[in-house]
Amino acid sequence: MSLPVLMFFVCGVLAVTGAILLIWAKEPIHSALALILVMVSLAVLYLLLGAPFIAAIQIIVYAGAIMVLFVFVIMLLNAGAEEHTDFSRLAKYIGLPLGVILIFWAAHWLWRSPVATAEGTGGLIAGPDSTRNLSVQLFRQYLFPFEATSILILIAILGALVLARKEE
């Protein structure tokens, strides 16, 4: 087994374990840590797909900024341990089987899809010049969606400011 394949399985298992732990953990901080584990494993998977820029941004934005805020808020509120409730009957008899079916269905289609068999799956964002290619795409072809998203985020920031401001 070559090193990239080994890395893929290690990170895949880590990501799934982290996702399960995220739901399972009672302490909010443990859940946050599990989510960070998921994000870092996903970043390594992006790296293996040949998209280092996306991998770095994944870590900087999600693990380095958003999750720090999560941890910060959990620490600030000093959130206590949560209690597990029993499975609801709906979840037990319909949700669980449907979830299993969804997993197998997705696996089946991924297995059959051309993505699984193609040699290079990274496309334009892969390779040593990935950052340049990505920015050319973003600022030439997809300029309007990019700017629209920026304005959307700006509006969200303004909204957060309005909500957070103290009443006069």
Binding site: I29, L33, I36, V40, A43, P52, F53, A55, A56, I57, I59, I60, A63, G64, A65, V68, V71, F72, I74, M75, P128, S130, T131
Partner: peptide, 25 residues
Amino acid sequence: VGIGLLMVFAITSIGVYGVALAGWS
């Protein structure tokens, strides 16, 4: 690495957890 600078920022940006988690735990 081709994106060395971003990688260093990625690694150092997770470094804050050491301090934050030490304080909390």
